[in-house]
Simulated scan of single mutants.
Amino acid sequence: MNSSVSKSFDPVIRPAGLNGVLISFGDVLSEPANRAALAFAAAVGRAGIDGIEDCAPSLVSVFVQFDPLHLPLDRLVAQLEDLLRDQNWYAAAMPEGRRFIRVPTVYGTDRAPQLEEAAQAAGLSPHDAIAQLSDARVRVQTIGFAPGQPYLGLLPEAWNIPRQTALTKAVPEGALVVAIRQFVLFSVANPTGWRHVGQTALRLYRPDSDQPFFLRPGDEVQFVQAPPDVLERYADDPNGGAEIEAIP
C-alpha cells in the first residue's frame, strides 16, 4: 500500500462523552489516516497510561475510554498530545503481529449474485472486475457493525461505487460485499446496502474461542478467486480454507 503522506490534516483530540476522547487523523478515509489510527492505538496501549480503560481504532480515529475520577481529562489530553508529537503517525510502522490471509472466494454465480451489477457500476467487465478484486491485497481497517466484522481497503479507484439505494434483506455469513473502495466481509447474516460480489466459507465470529474475532485491525487479506465447490469443501473448516502467514 502507498504510505505517502499529505500533511493537510493535523490530528485533533476531542472529548467524547464524560469518559472518552476521540483522536482523529483525517476527515475522509485514506491509507495514511488509517495507518496513523492503527499505529497510534497500538502506541497508546504500549504507553500504559494509568487511568485508561480501553483504546480502540476506527477507520481514521482512535477512541480512548478513561476513568475521570482517576485521570482528569486535561492530564489525559496532555499525555496524548505528548505521544502525538513523538513521530509522524501518518508514516508510522504498522503494529506488530499482523498476518496475511488468502481466502478462497467464489465470485458471482448464484452464491454472490451482484457481481455483474457491481462490475457495471465500476465500469468493468465481470472478468476484469473479478481479476481486480481477486488480486487486491487489502488491510483490515477496523472491526465494527457486527461482532468481528471487518472493513477492508482501499480498493482501486474504479471501486469508488456508491451503496445501493435500497437494502438487500440479508446476505449470509461469509458474504463479501463492496462499495466506496472497501470490502466488508460479513460475520453473521445481515441486511446490507453494499453489493454482494463474493462468497467465502470463512467464519469470522467464534464466540467459544479464546479469540472470538478471527481478523484484527492491520491484518492484510486477499480474496482469491476459487471454484464454487470450495464452499462445500471447506464447510467444516472455520478458516474456510484460508492460507495464513505472519507479516514480518
Rank of each mutant, 00 (worst) to 15 (best):
Q114A: 00
T142Y: 02
L133M: 15
A201P: 14
Q132F: 15
T165Y: 00
L115E: 06
G123I: 01
Q164C: 03
L167Q: 04
A43C: 12
Q132W: 14
L76F: 01
A166W: 03
L22W: 06
G51H: 00
P217G: 01
A146L: 15
R99D: 05
H127K: 02
S134G: 10
P150V: 13
E31S: 12
Q211P: 05
E220L: 14
D229G: 02
D128K: 04
S209T: 02
E53W: 00
L202H: 07
P212F: 00
P68C: 11
S3H: 15
A246T: 08
R75S: 07
A91E: 15
D219R: 08
L215W: 10
P207H: 04
S134Q: 12
G97L: 10
N19D: 11
P126V: 08
R99Q: 11
I101H: 13
P217L: 01
S3L: 15
L185W: 14
H127M: 08
G17L: 12
S209E: 09
P207G: 02
R75W: 08
V60C: 08
F9N: 07
D208N: 05
T165S: 08
D229I: 05
D237R: 10
P104M: 13
R102H: 09
P32C: 04
D27R: 11
A92P: 13
L152E: 14
G108T: 00
V106H: 08
I161F: 00
E220T: 12
I101A: 13
N88V: 02
F9S: 11
V28T: 14
R139Y: 13
A42I: 02
P57K: 09
L115T: 03
E243I: 15
L59C: 09
Q182E: 11
V184Q: 06
Q164N: 10
A121I: 01
R181V: 08
A16F: 11
D135G: 13
A166F: 07
F100A: 04
T105E: 03
Q65D: 14
Y205W: 14
P172L: 06
I143C: 02
D229H: 11
D219F: 08
P238F: 11
A158E: 12
C55E: 02
S6L: 15
I13N: 08
W159H: 00
V221Y: 12
V60I: 14
Q120F: 09
R111H: 03
K7I: 01
A43L: 07
G153S: 13
N88L: 03
F9P: 09
N19P: 06
V138A: 07
D229F: 13
D208L: 10
L155N: 06
V171P: 01
